[in-house]
Computed example of a mutant assay.
Amino acid sequence: MEERPVGIEDSDVRQALNAWGITPVTWEYAPVGFGDYHWTATDTQERRWFVTVADLAHKSWYGDGPGGALHGLRDAMDTAVALRGADPDGLDFVVAPVRTADGETVRGLGTGHAVSVFPLVSGAPGHFGDTLAAPDRGLVLDLLARLHRTAPPASARVLPPEFATRPQLERALREIGSPWDGFGPFADPARQLLADHATALRGRLDEFDRRAGELRASGAPLVITHGEPHPGNLLRAGERRLLLDWDTVGLAVPERDLWLVADGPDDLARYEEAGGRKPDPSALALYRLRWALNDVAEFLGWLRAPHDRTPDAQQAWTALTSSVKSLAADP
């Protein structure tokens, strides 16, 4: 996020690092990503850290309220740590958090946030929306095949295809007939955007239900999945490719990951050879559709809450517009 979290001061985050035995010497806010807040730090032993503060209000897939979100986030970070040491040599492409002196991967911060700490790994990060060249896609598909073959840790949660933000999308569609006053400058434009494409969006929700029903009926086995292996979560460290941001890790079908990486039959064939399972086109389409619908719901959540004309609000509006128009344009 470009903006800093409301109600959380730098001093609060620095104080929380005492649980990890970290005393920052250098400290800098990192305005990257969307949804969480990040800092980089160097401590008295010249170790470099990447500090993340999660906004628990925007982790609804874990459960209701900050308590449920904190519990779910801790399960995800515990899973990442377990995966890092899963093989005899570990899944070395997993960038996992470090534990506190008490063994925690996540600690609550105030009433609605949580902090976790990662080693700051040198490398070239990607960006969401980048197009991966064929060699990089192949390397990522090989990593995913290895991940999907790994025995799931006990902390890994089953993540069904249904998305927790759906009620707020459906509520917004029901309320497009009246102005969305009092939220901020992008609220009523968002209402008009939904009103213009309401029929198409309801049709895509029906399609989602049909495909999700087909997946449940198939009885496809579940594997451990990353959830968001897009270029923005990929770090190029020399010849190595590392995966970041494991807060969406969980048990699902492989297609939850594959749709974000595979580009055509050659990529799917490579995964089938490495992973031992033929990807299902309908499940790929399901997760592609799920991503877009969830994006619409999440961006609406930002814009149907109090906001100003800030860079983050502008980004949410731009992304909402793109997602809605893309959904309406697809057959």
Rank of each mutant, 00 (worst) to 15 (best):
D257K: 10
G238T: 07
L243C: 11
L242Y: 02
R241M: 02
Y287E: 05
K278M: 06
D280I: 04
D266A: 15
R240W: 03
L244V: 01
Y271I: 11
R241L: 14
L260Y: 06
P279H: 06
G238Y: 10
E273W: 01
G275F: 01
T248D: 15
R277P: 01
E272G: 04
G276I: 05
A274R: 11
E272V: 01
L251V: 06
S282L: 06
P281W: 08
L284C: 02
A274Y: 00
E272D: 09
A269V: 03
V253Q: 09
A237C: 12
A269F: 05
A262D: 11
D257S: 10
L286F: 13
L244R: 08
P279K: 01
Y271V: 04
R277L: 12
P254M: 08
A262N: 05
G275S: 07
A237N: 14
W259H: 15
A237F: 07
D245I: 00
D280L: 04
W246P: 06
L284W: 01
A252I: 06
L258W: 10
L284D: 00
A274I: 00
G264C: 11
A285W: 03
L244F: 12
V253P: 13
L260W: 11
A237K: 07
P254N: 08
V249S: 03
D266I: 12
L268Y: 03
D263C: 08
P254V: 08
V253L: 07
L286D: 02
A269N: 07
A269D: 13
R277T: 13
A285K: 10
D247T: 11
R256N: 14
L286K: 04
A269M: 02
E272P: 00
W259I: 12
R240F: 00
G276A: 06
E272K: 06
L258F: 12
P279V: 01
S282Y: 00
R241Q: 03
E255T: 11
G250V: 13
L268A: 11
G264V: 09
G264S: 08
A285D: 15
A283C: 01
R270P: 07
D245A: 04
A262G: 12
D266G: 10
R256I: 11
L251M: 15
V253K: 04
R270Q: 15
D247V: 07
L284N: 00
V253H: 03
A283I: 01
L243G: 05
V249G: 05
L260Q: 15
A283G: 04
P254Y: 13
D267H: 09
P265F: 05
D247S: 13
D267V: 02
D267S: 07
E239M: 02
R277S: 15
G264Q: 10
P265N: 01
A285F: 00
E239H: 11
R270N: 10
A274P: 00
D247R: 03
D257P: 01
L284Q: 04
G264T: 11
R240L: 05
G238W: 03
A274L: 14
L268H: 03
L286T: 01
R256M: 12
L268N: 07
K278A: 12
